[in-house]
Design a protein around this nucleic acid. Structure first.
Lengths: 188, 188
DNA sequence: CTTAATGATTAAGGTATCTTAAGAAATAAG
DNA sequence: CTTATTTCTTAAGATACCTTAATCATTAAG
């Protein structure tokens, strides 16, 4: 667990063992069952979650009460509701386990203390945030112009694991189409 | 100019005059005429731009050769192509002045040096990046589900300045609809 | 002032995608 | 094994949005 975490961090910034241990001492491990919530709509998100195993989704309810999935996250991904976490406002979305999922939790207050004692950690999170921004920008820019069929093909090409581990109707939601129409598209 | 920049930075992190001066000494000022390019598709984006006045757009060409606008930026906004800047890969989008625009330019290499000598600056950029992420996530999450009419209303409500300073067909492009259809919508 | 270039509107017909509703198919639970 | 629950498919009619093409309005250029 610690190794997995260290390995991931080391892809961005090098820490010595003392630093890793200090960081690690602030982490809490927790396991969620399928359908359990890491974060519920309306709560203030006070933590950042590092998945060591499993699969989660972020979603919110639109004005008609339909669930809109905005993100999936897998092993070695960080997940949080950025807006709620940064601004300490109630989250408009929920984070829910699609499979049994184990996470390392870092509290915002603890993390900010760590930033003071280990400035390199701030670098790591800046880089992580930049990468999230790039990914989300790509989704934004590219997906918006694509036809649904192309978005679906793109998704299962780049993340075949989703097609295997996520029910179709959730993929439809993520692609912003109805399950019925996705079913149509898959026939082609 | 320096005051404007200092004022903006101070909203996030406090710097003393020595620090501000060191940062400021690495900035280059430049003015672009209307339709000039800050960055052209295919180039590697090596700088981050802080607008002190004016208005720019980011756009790319889709497979049919149509311009797709993905972002506007105004006074006191940072703009860059994040993917190209971070990964040093050719940019798939261009940044172009819609009005005469003046910017402060910080070179990536200089900025990274500054991060070492002034760690607080890294905090500032982490926070800026987080805010960009929040903004773009909101656009992503909310806009995707909205009907075009609602997106348009939302835009001119939250950024009335765009309706004044940006031609309608560019707003249509940003909203991912045709100018013809936007014209339809406005009649209602 | 006149012409050229740019931006905005209108209308007709077409296509992508949604809605609703019903019924298979697959998986989980008793 | 049987029933209940969850997930996937099919089909018909409705609607949001696009395409093309023409006309009008505004701003920039000679």
């Amino acid at each position: 667990m610690k190794d997995q975490f260290k390995k991931h961090i080391s892809r961005y910034v090098e820490f010595n063992d003392t630093e890793i241990n200090e960081i690690f001492s602030k982490l809490t491990q927790k396991t969620f069952k399928k359908k359990d919530y890491l974060l519920k709509e309306g709560q203030i998100c006070k933590s950042n979650y590092f998945l060591t195993s499993g699969l989660v989704r972020s979603f919110y309810l639109d004005h008609k009460g339909n669930e809109k999935i905005t993100q999936f996250a897998l092993e070695n991904w960080w997940v949080t509701n950025m807006e709620s976490y940064i601004k300490s406002v109630p989250s408009y979305s929920s984070i829910q386990a699609i499979e049994k999922t184990t996470v390392l939790i870092i509290d915002k207050i603890e993390l900010e203390k760590l930033f003071r004692t280990i400035p390199k950690l701030e670098r790591y999170f800046r880089m992580i945030t930049e990468n999230m921004l790039i990914a989300i920008q790509r989704r934004n820019d590219i997906y918006l112009q694509m036809k649904s069929k192309d978005r679906y093909d793109d998704l299962i090409h780049n993340f075949p694991v989703f097609a295997q581990r996520v029910p179709q109707y959730m993929i439809a939601s993520y692609l912003e189409i109805t399950p019925e129409y996705l079913s149509e598209l898959r026939k082609k």
